[in-house]
Design a binder for these strands. Structure first.
Lengths: 125, 125
DNA sequence: CATTCTGTTCTACTGTGAATAGAACAAATA
DNA sequence: TATTTGTTCTATTCACAGTAGAACAGAATG
């Protein structure tokens, strides 16, 4: 799996990494049960600091996406491991984006089409 | 229009303000052509610093949501004033959220239903 | 068993952004 | 004319991002 880090982005490195790992799962490149590289090895590959990868892993664990087994490694969780609060949090994160879409003049259908196209993009490739 | 600021949130104050102004427009509480309070008056109302409100206004102007008339005030833009790059930026912001939704086990339809319910919530009230 | 690798934890430093504060300016407004 | 407006400047405090090095204890491997 190919990860691209842009050091000069306004998005923190640990969040870029988290996002791309999640995208990798969504695209089916990696699956529940698979283990992620060690923080040291991953950091070495990406050319970033070990603590940055560690922060990313813990962010993903907080979201319920991976499980960190102490002294062992990080494993991608199964979908059924997600709790209700994660879905509530997701809704709160969609809100400002949907509001901005409406204010931009996008009609109801166009917003759904946009989201639908993103979903298809993830599932197709 | 009622604005609620949570100083201890992990979301910056200027972004909380931006989000709630956009929501206000989406809900129809304020309309294109309406003018926003002066940065000083707004800051006084919210109990925050003038520069924080100023930053929020400039963020909204950058997104094409309001127009700042120098030495006069801030006015809410019309939907047709939005450019193509704003829509492209919106899509990029939807991506990680959609990916996370898929990873959480939400099927295609459920994601669209979630977004649809948010849209209805904005338009109903 | 000994070595290596693992995630964890700690301190430490630099740089940047968020937020506040005060002051001053020129233009619009009342 | 006096007030209000957004703008700009400096300055400070605080927190976060990122890097760095070190040490620890448990797991994996030879």
């Amino acid at each position: 799996m190919i990860i691209r880090i842009e050091p000069d982005s306004d998005i923190p490195i640990y969040e870029q990494l988290s996002n791309q790992i999640v995208e990798g799962i969504a695209r089916g490149w990696i699956h529940p049960g698979d283990s992620l590289p060690s923080v040291r090895a991953f950091a070495s590959d990406l050319g970033v600091n070990m603590h940055t990868v560690n922060k990313s892993y813990h962010q993903l664990e907080k979201k319920g996406i991976i499980t960190i087994v102490p002294k062992s490694g990080a494993i991608i969780s199964s979908p059924q491991d997600f709790n209700e609060s994660s879905l509530a949090r997701l809704k709160e994160e969609y809100k400002p984006l949907v509001a901005e879409s409406l204010v931009a003049g996008m009609p109801h259908e166009q917003i759904l089409d946009l989201v639908s196209s993103i979903i298809k993009d993830f599932k197709k490739i």
